[in-house]
Structures are given as structure tokens and as C-alpha cells.
Write a protein that binds this DNA or RNA. Structure first.
Lengths: 196, 196
DNA sequence: ACCGCGTTATGACAGCCGTCATAGTAGCGG
DNA sequence: CCGCTACTATGACGGCTGTCATAACGCGGT
């Protein structure tokens, strides 16, 4: 979650994602986003003429790109990459945050999905696209580690689903145990999918 | 989701759960709940002096009890119960709803978690309790099918996490595929956990 | 008849929301 | 200096929110 100093527009998108993943879409106000980004309120309607919906959609898209890029970073950080190791790294990112910063925030894509799917079609599409840009590099990483192509997509879906659900349970319980449990139980299954 | 005709209080809790799982907590108003339940608006402050927070918490608790009871029903509906069959039944409940009624609604416990964890401590506790009353009978069902006790709890967490995550992905994509994928990929792992 | 109590009815309140309208500033090419 | 464009500033608007105050209703008990 590097907050590199870009233009005010990008900062607002980033701040929106931060606030959405903590408070949900409904409880995140436009004024809050501008304040959190240190940006003038008047810039909101200038950069996002589509209103809150556009801002939320861009925040969701940003989160999807971020998650996708992390996959490559996790792969690069492992000397001998394995599917279970990759999933453990994905999970560890969340346990690290929760142990250092508390269980304040979840996944912005999940938050937007829960809050907007049945009211804002464009946000639903943005969420679907975000999951796609997350799953694609994940599935490619799996195939690169020897997982058959027709299986990689399914396992990527399983990994993301389990992670998202474990994030929710961990926040509810105020404990990282669901996250570590999911990583431990799923590890062998993922590694066994490789054809060696 | 049987709407048995009980008293107005129970109807309001039920309606709250329905609206929350569709629109999220923030977008669900008290007036909406009363209208949806066909209950007088004045009854809200009478039955729920704790305000919206109490209503949300009771809706979450109701959902937890409902999910827990469903486990026994799924078990009773299978001639030869297996862990994979139980999970498939849990998933099928959602695919059936989505294919007949559309992807309008998700899990109310997940919605409350996403929307309230970082703002309402009591709702966080209610969500944790709901997950507990869901996981407990699930773990017991697993042990009853031959899964070692120390493993059953972990697998129950894995099953709920995967299901919750798959629900979110399915709603985002407008497709039941994440749900069916998770059931298919997780089935063998669950059955293999039995000591026969 | 009257009381008491659980329930309902209704209107008002302050507060926040997203959005819009309008005006203002800065910078730059001409 | 002008004019243009990009961006900022500010206040107002209607609408909705959760909550409260107040009063009325229905009805069994005595």
C-alpha cells in the first residue's frame, strides 16, 4: 500500500479505496475522500464528473490492478516458487497488516461488491473486472509452476475465494486464525496440482 | 428463507437480514425495514430500543442460527453423507437462489462485517458469534463423518471461507461459476480428510 | 367505568449525504 | 494586456438518515 506522491486525482482514488475497504461504500463520503487525500473538495467534481459511482469504480479498478501486480512481486520474492508458497505469501500480507495495524480494513473489491452489486451495475462490472485482473496473473503463475492450464483457472478462483472469505471471518473474529487455517489446509492441495 | 408468519418483532429482524444482505447495512434504512416487514414504524423503537445497531446485530444472529440449522437439514437430506456432499449442498443453496432469483443478495453476516467491523464493536461480536454458531454444527457434522476432531474445525473454517468468498465473486461476475468451481475443487480434499 | 400497559401513530429534529451552480484563481500562449 | 483553459473554492439545495417526543389506541383486568 505505497502512497507514492502522484497527482491529486490518483491520490483521491487511492484514498477512496482506503476508506471503502475500512468503512464500506455507503459510509464513505466524498468529503471524507477529499480530506483524506489532502485534496480540495472542488476537485472531486472536476476529476470525477460521474460522481461517487465513478470514484468507487476507479478505486475498485485500482485495487484489482494492485492485487494483480502483487502476484509478480510475491513470485519474485520466492527462491523456489510453489503454489502453496504463493498462497502463503498472499495470506501473509493480510496477517501482517492485521497484526501490526489491527483488523480495521478488508478488501475494497469485496466491500464494493457487497454494497453496490444490486444497486449500481457499473460497479458490479468494475468489481468483476477487478477480480479478473487479479485472477489472470495468478492463474498464469500457477501454470508457470507446473499446474495444468485447465486446472490453474479453477485453483486461482479457489485461492481468491478462500482468501476473501478468510479476510471477512478474520475481521469478524478479530483473529488471524481463519487466514492461517486456510493457508495451511489449502497448501497441499495446491502443490499436488502440479504435474511434475 | 421461510418467512413463517410470526410476530412483528421477528418479522422485522427477518426483513432486516433480507435487506442487509441485498443492499448492505449502510443503505438499509429503518423505515425500509418496517415497510418491508409490513410493521408499523413506531414499533421499531419499541422492540429495538438499542436502535439500528441492535436491529443489525439481531439480524446477524438470526442469520447465524439459520445457517447452523441448515447443516442438520443438509445432513438429513443425504442418504450417504460425505464431506464433499455436504459442501456441495451448502453451495447448491446459493446457486439455486442465483439461478432462480438473480444475483441480488449475498450473506448478511458478510455484509455486516464489511460495513460495521471498524465502526460498531457490538456488531463485530455479533458477526463473530454468527460465524461460530455456523461453524460449530458444521465441524460436528464433519467429525460424525469420520473426520478427526482436530481437523474438523479447520476444514469447517475453510469451507465457510471459500463459500463466502465464492458468493462475493459470483455476485460480482453475475455467474455461479466461482461457486461450482469451489465445490468441485474442494470436494476431494474434504473427503480425503476422513479416516476410514 | 376506569386504570394500566403493550403497542402504534405521527411529526419534528439535527445532521449528513451527493450534487449542482457560481465564482474565483493560477498559469500560459498570444 | 487579453483570453483561454485547468483547476479550486464555497455555499446552497433537496433528500434521506436515525432518533426522539408526544399522543393516541386497543384491550384485558377489576
Amino acid at each position: 500500500m505505497t502512497g507514492t506522491e502522484r497527482g491529486p486525482r490518483e491520490r483521491m482514488v487511492f484514498s477512496a479505496a482506503q476508506l471503502i475497504r475500512r468503512d464500506g461504500v455507503g459510509a464513505t463520503g466524498m468529503r471524507d475522500v477529499a480530506a483524506h487525500a489532502g485534496a480540495p473538495r472542488g476537485s472531486l467534481q472536476h476529476y470525477f464528473p460521474g460522481g461517487k459511482e465513478q470514484l468507487v469504480n476507479e478505486a475498485v479498478a485500482w485495487a484489482g490492478r494492485y492485487a494483480g501486480k502483487r502476484i509478480a512481486r510475491f513470485m519474485a520474492g520466492m527462491s523456489e516458487p510453489t503454489p502453496s508458497g504463493l498462497f502463503a505469501a498472499m495470506v501473509r500480507q493480510w496477517t501482517d497488516e492485521y497484526e501490526t495495524a489491527g483488523f480495521l480494513s478488508g478488501c475494497p473489491v469485496a466491500a464494493a461488491t457487497v454494497d453496490c452489486v444490486s444497486s449500481a451495475p457499473s460497479t458490479r462490472e468494475a468489481a468483476a473486472a477487478a477480480f479478473a485482473t487479479w485472477r489472470k496473473p495468478l492463474a498464469e503463475a500457477l501454470t508457470g509452476m507446473g499446474v495444468p492450464a485447465e486446472r490453474a483457472g479453477s485453483l486461482a478462483t479457489l485461492m481468491i475465494s478462500s482468501l476473501e472469505g478468510a479476510i471477512i471471518m478474520a475481521r469478524a473474529e478479530g483473529d488471524v486464525r481463519p487466514l492461517t487455517t486456510v493457508a495451511r489446509e489449502l497448501g497441499p492441495l495446491l502443490d499436488a496440482a502440479r504435474e511434475s
